[in-house]
Design a protein around this nucleic acid. Structure first.
Lengths: 157, 157
DNA sequence: TCGTTAGTTCATAATTTACAGAACTAAATT
DNA sequence: AATTTAGTTCTGTAAATTATGAACTAACGA
């Protein structure tokens, strides 16, 4: 399979982005390839050859992405190969994870407030505000999504 | 300086959280310590000794955090030591960075749509939706913050 | 001006990570 | 039954990361 320069560039950029989210380089490239390739579904072999990564690295990457629910595959009868693609629900999940991550931070900060004993309560106040904002954001997010869906439908009509 | 078990535990948890945001372990622990310690300001020596990290690691961590604007310090006359503390604006900045990160993802995805040529446009649609949602979120965020500020004031009154 | 303190810099050691390559397995095909 | 295909697992290692310790510097105080 051949890719344009732009596609190769995007795979790298997306790869670096996903590395910053804690993915291994090879894993991030596999996601990138599945994302930018013209074909929506690729085989083990195509992935391995196109990205020039070994079979073992390819195997690990694909299993990792399968386990974490980032990709899925289909098969066709009379064909032993699996055809991998990005899970379409992936986007919402990716967003959810970012939000959960903020939730985790918020929980940590709440525990910080409980545990530390600063002589001067001024030091606690800004942290309180931030916690409160994160709580508010979390509470409002469903509304926001609902609103977007409304606007989006309007737009399409 | 002595810390309670809970404080030590929180430093570790916060440390691991910040490692996932790309900070080096020692740097993340220093942030954690400044966050959970009862004293809001700590010296180089206190940090190094409490966390049991070498002077060089402490030096690197503090300079790194100073350069990236996560901490700041004050001095007192007749005292050569610097007293480090977490920057209070740090929280909003931390949140901003998360949002910018989503913006970066969005830009990448827009370019993906431009570059890849899927035979079947169904594959593009879900991605379009997601992009559109991220745009919406970005646009609505200032309102959301404003609204929170209102509610927050009400609450306090 | 001599010693001490506060912190920096550099070379190196230790650890972690990420991947390749080879040997292997299980199923399907001939 | 033998071979090919599709993929896995295991072992070794190269590279990158992270921290240490020792030597150094700059400024202050006695």
């Amino acid at each position: 399979m051949t890719l344009t320069d732009k596609q190769l560039e995007l795979i790298e950029e997306f790869g670096i982005y996903q590395e910053s989210n804690g993915f291994q380089p090879a894993v991030a490239r596999v996601m990138g390839l599945l994302l930018v390739s013209d074909k929506p579904e690729l085989t083990f072999e195509e992935i391995s050859e196109t990205l020039n990564i070994s079979k073992s690295a390819t195997s690990n990457a694909l299993n990792m992405l399968l386990n974490t629910g980032h990709i899925e595959y289909t098969t066709f009868h009379g064909d032993r190969k699996r055809y991998f693609r990005i899970k379409s629900s992936n986007w919402r999940e990716l967003f959810n994870k970012k939000m959960e991550d903020l939730g985790e931070l918020n929980n940590l900060l709440k525990r910080v407030l409980e545990v530390r004993e600063r002589e001067n309560p001024i030091y606690d106040q800004k942290l309180q505000y931030f916690i409160s904002f994160l709580d508010y954001l979390k509470a409002q997010l469903p509304n926001l999504i609902e609103q977007w869906e409304k606007e989006h439908l309007k737009e399409k009509a």
